[in-house]
Nucleic acid binder design. Structure first.
Lengths: 146, 146
DNA sequence: CTTGACCTTCCAACGATGGGAAGCCCCATC
DNA sequence: GATGGGGCTTCCCATCGTTGGAAGGTCAAG
């Protein structure tokens, strides 16, 4: 099948299929006489594997390792688990970082009147976090432990 | 002061200061006869504002808006709050997406023996999520609601 | 044979940041 | 006054995953 069909069937865009071929994540596709790439259902299967891994947030380098393990019939599931665990740790780190940001911002938003007046704790914090945030934290603390 | 000192004082690297100038986030710095950029404490203040906003995950476009509001003495705090709220929504979305990934992966990891055998639910899911994940979800459901 | 949808390659961009090269400037030390 | 080292300048490149577009060839239906 043509690359467009493979794209539809796998959920990976034609652009990305060519890209994955170019960076060596997938082998070079067969070509027809016309120069068109030709894909088999097995190729689509691989692409779906990649698509799923990307949906789970794996980086291309990790997907490369996972593909190697997938193809290796004598693999050890421990190897796969190790990669997955490392990736989870990475995800959890990013989540914690975003949570931290969101939490701080929510504290600030709670303190902001959000009306027509110019006074704004959010800007005050951006201007000088040490000045404002400590006060806000204290307020927050008193709200949480009245 | 030179760009290096401004970088140290603000926590924004010299590279990024030049970059922010180039993209118009900050005005073009004064130049000495030597061609060196010259920064005032007020400039450093702006840079620290930017640094803090980046720490809170604001994108450069949002920081641009925040800077405009910061400089606008007749601003309305509601405008700032709106930007902050939109940004939080964005953060929460990204968090939810990452949580989703981490949760799925953890379910899979729980189901993976992680030993020397090749059988691996993680790869099974990547290969065909519909096949495996439903089973895993059911298991998970039964674990959560025994 | 024409038309429109599809394919090809190549080049560029996003966002934020870092690395590095070539060349100039400034200050301290000899 | 010369020299050395560190800071500054501009410019280009890389990351990472993805998308967009231009210029041109191919295919299938009318």
């Amino acid at each position: 099948m043509n690359i467009g069909q493979a794209a539809k069937d796998s959920g990976v865009s034609a652009k990305m299929i060519r890209h994955y071929e170019q960076i060596g994540l997938i082998p070079k596709a067969e070509r027809r006489d016309s120069g068109y790439r030709d894909y088999s259902p097995a190729d689509v299967h691989v692409l779906r594997f990649i698509r799923r891994a990307r949906d789970l947030g794996f980086a291309v380098a990790e997907i490369n390792d996972l593909l190697d393990l997938w193809r290796d019939r004598s693999r050890q599931s421990a190897d796969v688990k190790r990669i997955a665990k490392a990736h989870i740790a990475n995800l959890r780190e990013r989540i914690a970082s975003l949570e931290q940001m969101a939490g701080t911002l929510e504290t600030l938003i709670d303190c902001c009147a959000g009306d027509e007046r110019p006074d704004c704790p959010i800007l005050a914090d951006l201007e000088d976090p040490a000045e404002f945030l400590n006060v806000a934290s204290a307020l927050n603390f008193r709200k949480a432990h009245p």
